[in-house]
Simulated assay, not measured.
Amino acid sequence: MKPFVAFFIMTICLASPVWAQDLTGPQKNAVRSANAYLSMSGFSRDGLIEQLSSAYGDGYEEVDAIAAVDSLSVNWNEQATRSAWNYLKIMGFSCQGLIEQLSSDAGDKYTRAQATYGAQQAGAC
């Protein structure tokens, strides 16, 4: 199995709801949206919440977006690595530049530790 295919399958499996039975209808819908986003691209926890709750995104209430994202079992380090790989596919980054992009509030909103992990795993450091 190719590494990306294995990573994709693993991401989908890891992003399944942990306590979906306790979620409201809007929260369950936000889980479905979150899983769709995670199947397409890497997201940080805060970035995914913003995507789900933004008026320019899905428009869910922030409380519903938070509950949905927090109900998922996601390896955020793997998501940071995925995002780092995506950035490196389109342009070059220094190690520090990629960490800044991944961890910036104007960027992907990963924690500094997650961004560092992702940049290192993607080979930028």
Rank of each mutant, 00 (worst) to 15 (best):
P3S: 11
L72A: 07
S53K: 06
K89N: 11
D64F: 00
C13Y: 11
F93T: 06
G123S: 09
A55R: 07
E62W: 01
A20W: 04
L23M: 12
Q21M: 03
C95E: 12
S103G: 12
Q21Y: 03
I12L: 15
E100G: 10
L52H: 01
K89R: 15
Q96W: 00
N77Y: 14
N35R: 15
D70W: 00
V74S: 04
K89C: 05
E50T: 11
P17H: 02
A80H: 07
S44M: 02
L48V: 03
W85S: 06
A122W: 11
S16M: 13
A36C: 02
S44D: 03
Q101Y: 02
E78F: 13
S73Q: 12
F7V: 00
C95N: 11
G107L: 09
N77F: 13
E62V: 14
A68R: 09
A106T: 13
N77G: 06
Q96Y: 00
D22T: 14
M1L: 10
Q121H: 11
A84F: 02
C95Y: 14
G97P: 07
L102Q: 10
A119F: 05
L38S: 07
A20K: 12
L98K: 05
A34S: 10
M40W: 11
K2H: 13
A6S: 11
K28W: 00
Q121V: 02
C13W: 12
K89T: 10
T116V: 12
M40I: 07
G118K: 06
G57L: 02
G92N: 15
Q51P: 01
M1N: 08
N77C: 10
T81A: 11
G123V: 05
D22R: 15
W76F: 14
I9C: 07
A68L: 10
W85Y: 13
N86S: 15
S54V: 07
S104H: 03
A55Y: 01
A6P: 00
G57W: 03
E100W: 01
